[in-house]
Amino acid sequence: MSIHFEKVNYIYQAGTPFEHQALKNVTVSIPKGSYTAIIGHTGSGKSTLLQHLNGLLKPSSGHVTVADKEITSTTKNKELGELRKHVGIVFQFPEAQLFEETVVKDIAFAPKNFGKTQEEAEKIAIEMADLVGLPDNILNGSPFELSGGQMRRVAIAGILAMKPDVLVLDEPTAGLDPKGRLEMMQMFEKLHQRQQLTIVLVTHQMDDVANYASHTIVLEKGEVIAAAPPKEVFKNPQWLLEHHLALPKATKFAYELQKTGKFSFDKMPLTEKDLAAAIANSLKRGGN
């Protein structure tokens, strides 16, 4: 299921002195089965864009197509319920949404809302808890007694329980320690591979973009300034500098090496693995 934005504008508090245009003429696609990274600074319109993906916001003008459904400014709220099942959004610090007495009940909340019986929903919940790597012995305990990392997994399982086609992640690793971050990113990668989930990742971590994404959307002040695979986006360091965007560490290192005049790369590496391969290749050839 692909998602398409066509000339979408979104204006907050239209007609008041506080009017603010958060999205400007956005035309962009998120291909089915892709791992799309959305990057841009705080205030670039990322979260406004996200909220259009499952109809939390409706475009002021233009339209968004999700699951063959066209959403415009006049779409009725009732018609959006179905859509929310298809696009699961994991917001920043999603552990803030937990409220049930037990972990299982909390994960089962969404499927129940979408018409599953208590038993069906709990069965899905147990399945999802396993999928995100939660141990069995915590399932009937309170979610509020877990560690921060585990609470976040419960919240993510609660979204996966809707069995969405698209999983949207808004800085899912914020506030975790490096080990927690790595495990979390590997978990999403696994979901992407095994469940054929389309993933939309909002992030500030260029290394995550380089390591996992197949597609990148760059936002600046509400406009899409680039939409291409990461290797295209990171090809032009000058352009990135102008837009105050960082390079992945491996790419940055490769440019530093190139500056010495002793190394040269045909294709700029994005990850440590690519970089090591390119360096090993140069070393074996004996440099320039």
Binding site: D177, P178, A250, E272, K273, A277
Partner: peptide, 21 residues
């Protein structure tokens, strides 16, 4: 280092990868 709550320094990651060659 990752067990101690710190990211692995980039140069260490790269060294490990290069060692593989």
């Amino acid at each position: 280092l990752i067990e101690s709550g710190l990211d692995i320094p980039f140069s260490e990651k790269l060294k490990n990868e290069i060692k593989n060659y």
